[in-house]
Amino acid sequence: MAKAIMAAPRDAYGKTLVELGKENRDIVVLDADLSKSTRTIFFAREFPERFFDCGIAEQNMIGIASGLAASGKTAFTSSFAVFTPGRCFDQIRISAALPHLNIKVVATHGGISVGEDGASHQAIEDFALACAIPGMRVIVPTDAVETAQVIREAANIGGPFYIRLPRSSVPLIHSDSYHFELGKSAPLREGKDITIIAAGVMVSAALQAAAELEKDGVDCRVLSMPTLKPIDEGAIIKAARETGAIVTAEEHSKFGGLGSIVSQAVTKNSPVPMSMIAINDIFAESGKPAQLLQKYGLTAVDIKREVISTISRK
């Protein structure tokens, strides 16, 4: 396999904000003292009058963003995923989502691949928190190309969004001709024996697993599922009917994330053997991202193992 081109989704986020800022003077950006890490600093340098650093006060940041949104602005807020939604779930719920305001909560540093900062900084509950809020659209972009499109799409569509990005650079999966559509999965590989449905940084692991399984004679379909909510139920049902087994893969707790959502669709419409690659009911720890992904079972090897065991249950 050719060496993948790596790119950081958060860089794509920062650059896209600048483009949006040039096109639309109603775009405003807020951060909570992490603008260098989240890359909102790109926007801050270009449009200082439309950038609001709220200091280390995420709850206040969400409230301010909501007030701006209620006054006609499209407000992007950023922090780490453990802090938004982690620190300010109630503010996102009451100030932003209940009035259905035009606020885009974009969190970087999602998942355990944050690495050395340890469990306190590794958001593994944010999909569940965000998805549980009525009307919230939840997106986990796959790579930098998709991130840029997701940010544009979120700016174009009214109402609240939660978008989770990783800290690290990830392989580019999509070409420039790719087109993201809210609520639609992206078929990355056709296959008839089983479907791997993956989100975020797990997509490249899923593709790797599928390529290796091909050598063993297993024909895997791979679906990238960037939108967790509203979920692409049609593609899930189709995958269940056509391939007869599903494995999901996500960098999130196994409670309330992609696996839970997919299993709801599957059990209701077309029950087939299913398995979830996700983090067990445990906090992770400090370590290098690759070490953590390995220790906590989020690698291509883990996906391969689950695929084989799930197919055996068909």
């Binding site: 439309r50 206040n60 409230g63 909501s66 007030g67 701006l68 209620a70 009451i94």
Partner: peptide
């Protein structure tokens, strides 16, 4: 806010209104 004409903010969880107002005040400045 979505239910009643004239209501500026949804509330019921205390402590959130002043932050919301800052956003409205900043928008006025912009």
């Amino acid at each position: 806010k979505t239910a009643t004409p004239g209501v500026e903010m949804s509330s019921g969880s205390l402590g959130q209104g002043l932050s919301f107002s800052i956003g409205i005040a900043l928008a006025a400045r912009l």
